[in-house]
């Protein structure tokens, strides 16, 4: 019993994206590995670069096994994301902590009965400002989306004055920048 690993509710896949403009978006996306125990998660986390050490243009994505980290996947296309945008200063102070908290929320199934709505999470390392998002599978599932957003905000330790927004992928795909519309905020 002492030596058995602790199983997770789901098997998770960690993906890595490195921006190489000579290749297609999909060719730049690589599956690193899959894991389904607490111990194997830490073995992986301890052996990869911290997000803050990645070069600009890179992403990590952690998704449930069978869901690809792209809008087009059947489990994502009706969904959306709770988006955390970080200032350049936050890369030093908070980026790695926020990403680790995000990973723990996912693998620990910390969104109660709505954990089933979660598809995965993405971190984008960008010169203009990093982003972290939790993706859920159904943007119209208001109760689930709001619950996940509230728990997530609390886990990150964000102040009640800070507002985070949820955007449907269908809207994100057709709009950008200031035109991006928040479907929900918490």
């Amino acid at each position: 019993e002492c030596f058995s690993k602790h199983p997770l509710q789901n098997r998770w896949a960690l993906w890595f994206f490195k921006n190489d403009k000579s290749k297609t978006w999909q060719d730049n996306l690589r599956l690193i590995t899959k894991f389904d125990t607490v111990e194997d998660f830490w073995a992986l986390y301890s052996n990869i670069q911290l997000a803050s050490k990645l070069t600009s243009g890179c992403d990590y994505s952690l998704f449930k096994d069978g869901i690809e980290p792209m809008w087009e996947d059947n489990r994502n296309k009706r969904g959306g994301r709770w988006l955390i945008t970080l200032s350049k200063q936050q890369r030093h102070a908070e980026l790695d902590r926020f990403w680790l908290e995000t990973l723990l929320c996912l693998i620990g199934e910390m969104f109660d009965d709505y954990s089933e709505d979660v598809c995965g999470a993405v971190i984008n390392i960008r010169a203009k400002g990093d982003k972290i998002a939790i993706w859920t599978q159904e943007a119209e599932n208001r109760d689930g989306v709001i619950h996940i957003g509230r728990v997530y905000k609390e886990r990150l330790g964000l102040s009640s004055k800070m507002v985070i927004g949820y955007q449907a992928h269908a809207d994100t795909a057709t709009k950008s920048g200031s035109l991006m519309k928040n479907k929900f905020v918490v």
Binding site: Q9, V38, E39, E101, M110
Partner: peptide, 20 residues
């Protein structure tokens, strides 16, 4: 039975790997 783990439980395992 669903496998749920809280933050502190999960973090406890990080130190096992950090000390190896």
């Amino acid at each position: 039975e669903k496998k749920r783990y809280d933050r502190e439980f999960l973090l406890g395992f990080q130190f096992i790997f950090a000390s190896m």
